[in-house]
Amino acid sequence: MSYKVSEEGNVATIHLDGEIDMDVTEKAKEVIFPHIDAGKEVHLNLSNVQYMDSSGISVLIESHQKALEKNTKVIIKDVSKSVLKVIMMAKLEQILNLE
């Protein structure tokens, strides 16, 4: 997994790239969580993530819940068809902020 982060005002945009599985979840958390902890609104762009397993879904849930605690939000953008299918299988499409 690789990533790219850009910041503008109170928004941190994070592009993840690759397959998100158990092997990279700690790295994904290290990239995402500090921005949430800093109170930033996080735009998580998943257009280049073609595979995500339950560990990756857990990172999305944890990010969402952490953001609620910090009175901010995580918006998941440009999710690929294959990852959307997994999000829907987990019945999270109404819980997570998808754009």
Binding site: D53, S54, S55, I57, S58, I61, Q65, A90
Partner: peptide
């Protein structure tokens, strides 16, 4: 978080 693998 967690507990979804078996569900999938």
């Amino acid at each position: 978080p967690g507990g979804l693998g078996t569900f999938f």
